[in-house]
């Protein structure tokens, strides 16, 4: 069966060929790196985010030769996300690999926290992930029929497990995502959808760049100032590895941290 042999060869080089991926928050950081890692392995990718220019820039730099698509869509805007989903299906196909990554982080003592900042973290990190998950669930469940791979991957943070004073709202949003991912896994795993939770340690991204509180900003900068920090590409490689495992294998939770950060939390 030479035809089958050819497919096997091709799949070894491009194990994610025939997969259609959607990545939220894809204009930078872990989102952009994940889009690139999936594309390099053969997947068609759709990049969603807020900054159209940066999205196009990332799209033009994708390393693979598969299809790609980029659109501005705010994860907190259900209608915009729904519109983006239809555009994705028209341009690159029905998604079977959704990476819910978009997130924001602010910090500072809760007593002084800006109400808008607090609300935004909950809206983007929690509600945004809920909208993303619910919108694409029908596609993911359909994709899983016949034991084909289908992934819903939540990019979370170790802040959902360990304690970072001055980052209470962010930590709470990450704990919510973790429990959402774990519960959804038990709910739809039997339907063949692999729900995964990636908890990243401190990574060199733009996350938290806008923190107004001086102390919180300094704490974050200190955590990033180690000689071999974790980069978005390394987190993306772990995500791509998990997506590439055979359909019956779900690497359902993984925590990835810089080796040097022995003590993960501040407390």
């Amino acid at each position: 069966m030479p035809f089958v042999d050819q497919i096997t060869l091709e799949d070894n080089r491009y194990p994610l060929r025939h997969r259609v991926a959607v990545i939220t928050g894809a204009e930078s950081g872990i989102g952009a790196a994940t889009a690139a890692a999936l594309h390099a392995r053969g997947a068609a990718v759709a990049l969603l985010g807020l900054d159209g220019r940066r999205l196009e820039e990332q799209r033009s730099r994708l390393p693979g030769d598969g299809l790609s698509f980029a659109a501005v869509a705010d994860v907190t805007d259900r209608q915009a996300m729904s519109r983006a989903r239809r555009q994705i299906m028209d341009s690159i196909g029905v998604p079977d690999l959704v990476v819910s990554n978009a997130g924001v982080m602010n910090g500072g003592p809760l007593r002084d926290a800006d109400v808008h900042d607090m609300t935004q973290m909950i809206e983007v990190n929690v509600l945004g992930m809920l909208h993303t998950a619910q919108l694409f669930l029908p596609d993911l469940e359909e994709a899983a029929v016949g034991s084909r791979p289908s992934d819903l991957i939540f990019i979370g943070s170790i802040a959902g497990e360990v304690l970072f004073p001055n980052f209470s709202v962010y930590g709470a949003s990450q704990a919510a995502i973790a429990q959402l991912a774990r519960t959804l896994r038990a709910e739809i795993g039997p339907n063949g959808v692999r729900v995964k939770l990636v908890e990243a340690g401190v990574t060199l991204t733009r996350l938290g760049k806008g923190i107004s509180d001086r102390v919180a900003r300094r704490e974050l900068e200190d955590l990033r100032e180690i000689d071999l920090p974790l980069t978005p590409d390394e987190v993306a490689d772990a995500v791509a590895f998990a997506a590439t495992l055979p359909p019956h294998v779900n690497l359902s939770e993984l925590t990835v941290v810089p080796t040097k950060h022995g003590r993960l939390g501040a407390v």
Partner: peptide, 25 residues
């Protein structure tokens, strides 16, 4: 999966992993 953990660049620690059959509740 264990081999992937060991093969990563030395500054990357995939420290906790849960690996399940997809259909296991």
């Amino acid at each position: 999966t264990v081999s992937f953990v060991a093969a990563l660049p030395k500054h990357v620690n995939l420290t906790e992993l849960t690996i399940l059959p997809t259909a296991q509740i």
